[in-house]
């Protein structure tokens, strides 16, 4: 997939675990894991909003485009 989610890197920088983040933003761990492992087909704006708020970052910090 061309869009890469850099959630693991941002989580490492913030020192937060995936479980903790999932609890804070109201995601199931399974869905958070799908996001982290780049298996997601789409991300809702509401989810992106919650992620940016909790991680104190911009959408561009979480997403990057990679050429195939």
């Amino acid at each position: 997939m061309a869009i890469h989610v850099k959630l693991d890197a941002v989580l490492a920088q913030r020192g937060i675990t995936l479980t903790e983040l999932a609890e804070r933003i109201g995601l199931t761990l399974a869905n958070a894991s799908i996001l982290k492992t780049n298996k997601a087909r789409a991300v809702r704006f509401t989810t992106l909003d919650a992620l940016c708020r909790e991680l104190n970052c911009q959408p561009g910090d979480l997403l990057e485009w990679l050429a195939d």
């Binding site: 995601l27 869905n31 958070a32 799908i34 996001l35 298996k39 997601a40 087909r41 789409a42 991300v43 809702r44 989810t47």
Partner: peptide
């Protein structure tokens, strides 16, 4: 359905 389940 698959798209829906993989939309986070």
């Amino acid at each position: 359905q698959e798209d829906q389940s993989l939309t986070i």
